Amino acid sequence: MHVRTLTGGLAATLLMSLPLLGGQASAAGPSGGSTVPAAAAARILTYDASGSAEFKSAVDRGAAIWNESVDSVELRPAASGQRANIRVLADNGWPRALPGSLGNGTVYIGRQAVNQGYNTVRISSHELGHILGLPDRKPGPCSSLMSGSSAGVPCTNPYPNAAEKAEVEGNFSATSRAPAPRPVLVGD
């Protein structure tokens, strides 16, 4: 996220100074002379956590974790009146995600898992991972976010591992716009 912000600022500075330079702006490659394409902008996905009740801060933190972890997609709270890509709701069932097309769907932060002692930020981050295209990976270790409940109640790790990050980066890269998956209930 910080790299993207710095890169965007550098690009803006180059564009602003283009008239002063009297030519075209290009980025120098590792050898100093070749040009390299600018980094692709992150795909912005909005989420509406207004129905997440007592879990709103956990949902916001889960989104922030994904923003810290990947560059190809960014999760932002939806503006008032804006239709969100992701709707987050609280209910008394088990946590689950209902993905639509990639980056779109509904997440339920179920109180059943919370009442059993599972960490709310891990739940939020895990369920958002489904919306970003990741499947459950059970059984799995605590180091795997998508291992979900199989890592046990003591596991509070809300961060995706390197493979999970790479998969999301691939899902949202400009060259890899996969066809929309069929809606599937993903429960954990």
Rank of each mutant, 00 (worst) to 15 (best):
I109T: 06
T156K: 15
A58T: 04
K56Y: 04
A38Y: 08
A39G: 12
N115T: 12
N92K: 14
V36E: 05
V114L: 13
G33M: 12
R87C: 05
R43N: 11
L89D: 03
T13N: 11
T13R: 13
Q116K: 06
M16C: 05
W94Q: 14
A162M: 03
S176R: 05
P154Y: 02
L75Y: 05
N85L: 01
S101A: 15
R137M: 02
G29T: 00
S26L: 04
P141I: 08
P160C: 10
C155P: 05
S124T: 13
A113C: 08
G103R: 01
A166N: 04
D188T: 08
L128R: 06
M16D: 14
G8T: 12
A162E: 15
V59K: 07
P160W: 15
E164P: 03
N85M: 05
W66A: 03
E127Y: 07
R96V: 10
L132H: 14
L18N: 07
S57R: 07
S147F: 06
G93D: 13
G9Y: 00
S72T: 11
S149L: 10
L45E: 05
S26K: 06
D48W: 05
N161F: 02
T120E: 15
W94N: 09
Y118V: 09
V114N: 07
P135Q: 12
L20S: 10
C142S: 13
N119R: 11
E164A: 06
I131N: 01
G117N: 05
A97W: 01
R61Q: 08
R182D: 11
L89E: 09
T7C: 10
I86A: 09
G103T: 06
H2Y: 00
H126W: 10
R76I: 11
E164Y: 04
R4S: 08
P99M: 08
S173D: 11
D136A: 11
T120S: 09
F55N: 13
M146D: 09
A166R: 13
E54N: 14
V70T: 01
A41P: 11
G105A: 01
P154T: 04
D71P: 00
S26F: 14
C155V: 07
Y118P: 12
V153E: 15
A174D: 06
L18S: 15
V186C: 06
N161C: 15
L21E: 10
T13H: 01
F172T: 00
D48H: 08
F172I: 02
T35I: 02
G110R: 03
R83Q: 07
E169P: 09
Q24A: 05
S147K: 12
H126K: 04
T46L: 08
S176E: 01
L145M: 13
G9D: 03
S57E: 01
G148E: 09
G140V: 00
D71R: 12
L75S: 01
A25T: 00
A90I: 00
V73L: 12
V107Y: 06
T120G: 02
V121E: 03
H2W: 00
F55L: 03
G117D: 02
V73W: 11
R61N: 13
R87Q: 06
A166G: 14
A63S: 03
D91R: 04
Q24I: 08
I109N: 07
T5W: 00
T106P: 03
V36K: 10
G117Q: 12
T5S: 13
L14M: 14
S69T: 14
P139R: 09
A166L: 14
M146A: 02
G29M: 06
R4N: 06
L10A: 14
P135E: 10
